[in-house]
């Protein structure tokens, strides 16, 4: 049985570099996420402390995790697109 993709895919010479970047960014986010869980677990009262104006740490950290995911997504896309363009350019130069 053939298991190939549903559509014909372009060659992706930047795959390895993108994957490495993905793993790094994933680990960074996982650590920040784990930090939130760890505070909730070891010192939940800390989450009630006001950190910015009258906003408590729970709200700031929680909203921050959501906004950080968006920002990291944009950064990842910009760098990946650069990797792809560079890899494609190299291929063109060779031909």
């Amino acid at each position: 049985m053939h298991h190939g993709p549903a559509v014909k895919l372009e060659a992706d010479k930047a795959a390895a570099r993108k994957a490495r970047l993905g793993v790094i960014l994933f680990i960074v986010y996982a650590l920040i996420y784990a930090g939130f869980v760890a505070i909730g677990l070891t010192n939940p009262d800390l989450l009630a402390i006001h950190v910015i104006g009258k906003q408590n740490l729970a709200i700031v950290y929680g909203f921050g995790l959501i906004i950080l995911a968006m920002v990291m997504g944009f950064i990842y896309n910009i760098i990946c697109t650069r990797y792809e363009n560079a890899a494609n350019k190299k291929m063109e130069d060779r031909t």
Binding site: G22, V23, F26, Y29, L65, I66, A69, M72, G73, Y76
Partner: peptide, 9 residues
């Protein structure tokens, strides 16, 4: 939402 980070990266 954090789950999507794993999905993307």
């Amino acid at each position: 939402l954090a789950g999507w980070v794993a999905a993307l990266f």
